[in-house]
């Protein structure tokens, strides 16, 4: 029962980054198009799940005083794996995401879950937590990216949606548009209760 709860909390109650305001940089940077948004979400899910597993397995061995450094090494290892795999098999996506793939290392969500959850809980619960948070993050990025791509370029996942007379609202795909759009989504989330403050 609790496993299901650990999984579903990442999907709504604590959905990152709308409720659990962490990991904003990639949220803003890679949501110009749905393709990059989903790509980043899936990569993060992979890193989150596997780092949660390993940290949860090692939680009794890692000395508390150097735990953050240990967590980061574990996370960085999985990020390198993602980086090399995407370079080999999904090169266009790798190029579009650019420096934001190595930047998964410093995504606060991964370290935050390692510190707050995986270092205190068993393997199965940690997998559920990582998977839930990762999928929640993917959903968030997809929603934000869909809004920005639709209004900013008139397309969705590269497919033309808006009619020929549509004038792209390029503000949405620029940096200020990213901030404002995320702000408006956070407003909408506030309608359903207060977000966790950082």
């Amino acid at each position: 029962m609790s496993i299901v709860k650990e999984f579903t909390k990442g999907l709504w109650a604590e959905i990152p980054p709308f409720r659990f305001v962490l990991g904003l940089c990639p949220t803003l940077a890679v949501t110009k198009s749905v393709e990059t948004g989903i790509g980043m979400g899936l990569m993060l899910t992979f890193v989150l799940v596997f780092s949660n597993i390993l940290i949860s397995l090692l939680r009794k061995i890692i000395p508390p005083s150097v735990r953050i450094a240990c967590f980061i090494v574990v996370i960085a290892t999985f990020v390198v794996i993602v980086e090399l795999v995407s370079q080999a098999y999904a090169y266009p996506l790798y190029q579009k995401l650019g420096i934001f793939i190595p930047l998964i290392v410093v995504n606060c969500i991964v370290l935050g879950r390692a510190e707050a959850f995986a270092s205190k809980n068993g393997v199965v619960a940690s997998i559920a937590d990582g998977l839930g948070m990762g999928i929640g993050y993917t959903i968030s990025l997809t929603v934000l990216a869909a809004i920005r791509e639709l209004f900013g370029a008139g397309t969705l996942y590269g497919i033309k949606i808006m009619g020929p007379s549509f004038e792209p609202f390029t503000f949405m795909v620029s940096a200020p548009g990213a901030f404002v759009c995320l702000g408006l989504i956070l407003c909408t989330m506030n309608l359903f209760g207060k977000a966790k403050d950082m």
Partner: peptide
């Protein structure tokens, strides 16, 4: 406005700063 409190209004302000 109540629903804008917290991070939401911060992000929108940041957007205008970026602009």
């Amino acid at each position: 406005p109540k629903i804008m409190e917290g991070t939401a209004v911060t992000m929108i302000t940041a957007g205008f700063m970026a602009l």
